[in-house]
Design a protein around this nucleic acid. Structure first.
Lengths: 192, 192
DNA sequence: CCTACGATGTGTGCAGTGCTCACATTAACC
DNA sequence: GGTTAATGTGAGCACTGCACACATCGTAGG
């Protein structure tokens, strides 16, 4: 709690806005993120969030940055120290699983304009990229780490989007996971 | 021309709307697609398009369907009958190139809700999927065609999105193409 | 020929949105 | 304790999607 309970007018409106935005994303499922709806949810006037976010994109970027960190945690949890291609497969499943579990958040993270200059957001994405690079570098020491990590990222990212867009015709998350496993194995198993 | 020139009030407003939408997408570069802006561009009142499109999503779906067909043409043009992995690489480059050349259209095609029941749209995406399946089946006869074609689609799709989102740090389309070549080769060249 | 009809386009209006501005409130600092 | 600056409010503008009543006009039926 620290001093978040009894501070200025609201408390910590910035955090409250991000939490309200998260809730709206999870509930509605579409990545609309109306600033006014967030304000209503947080119990403040429509223009109050402008004291903490320059515009709608700034709020979206803040939400996206949090999403990146959560995604990174989920990936690490899928397999702490992957060594085999099969370990990579499970991380791929975790990536797509995150997209399925939080479709609206995932879309905000990757399809909203956000603002490109947000250093918080940039750092979070760079973290994911670096994590992937170290992972695949450990599993496939012979491959070009840059090219290969980008390729792996692209695979899981593409699978996530195709799933969200209904192109994988998977009815349940388990079926989707199977699709992901099959696709990633098809790519990796041919390698040696 | 047929009878499109002297028909009812406008001529063929449906086509005019789709063309106006395409122009707006190419010019502004963001996938907003305001129905009113489309109407202005077509020179009709704000509500006239509703005679031809149920709502904004229906227009977006129509535009997306046209985009799918154009993408299919570009892919076929990249290599008429691919036989080697390197042929596949060039098709991958064409896919990402399309996303770079028409970023707003590409986003409408894949990130807008559109309406899922649009059979025109469904047919166009199924065509792309079938095309990819036949392609990769010819190049890699030993692989599971379903899983492998999905994987290949995911790779190029993910690369396209990462590029549009600025994650590939490629300044020019040529650099982006090199990134794509490197990534796809990293995946495919290890295969045999 | 000409009238009624149905397809197409217009205008108005409502609710919602992002964002700017002047204003109110209140915590924090001297 | 009073000043100041940070924070929240409210009205207002321009825009959007969309529903409604109305206008227009090509075309079929008499």
């Amino acid at each position: 709690m620290s001093q978040a309970n009894a501070s200025y007018h609201h408390g910590d409106l910035r955090d409250a806005c991000i939490r309200a935005a998260r809730e709206l994303l999870e509930e509605t499922g579409d990545a609309s993120l109306s600033l006014r709806a967030v304000a209503r949810r947080a119990g403040v006037s429509a223009t109050a969030p402008y004291r903490h976010f320059a515009d709608r994109d700034a709020l979206a970027s803040a939400v996206a940055a949090e999403g990146y960190r959560e995604l990174a945690v989920k990936l690490a949890a899928a397999h702490p120290s992957p060594e085999t291609p099969e370990d990579l497969v499970e991380i791929a499943v975790a990536y797509v699983r995150f997209a399925i579990d939080h479709p609206a958040l995932f879309k905000v993270m990757f399809t909203e304009p956000c603002d490109p200059g947000d250093e918080d957001r940039a750092a979070a994405t760079a973290a994911i990229n670096g994590y992937l690079k170290s992972i695949v570098g450990g599993v496939f020491p012979d491959a070009d780490p840059d090219a290969f990590s980008i390729a792996v990222w692209a695979v899981v990212h593409g699978l996530a989007f195709l799933q969200l867009d209904g192109k994988l015709d998977a009815a349940t998350p388990e079926q989707a996971a199977d699709r992901v496993r099959a696709a990633v194995r098809a790519l990796l198993s041919v390698s040696r």
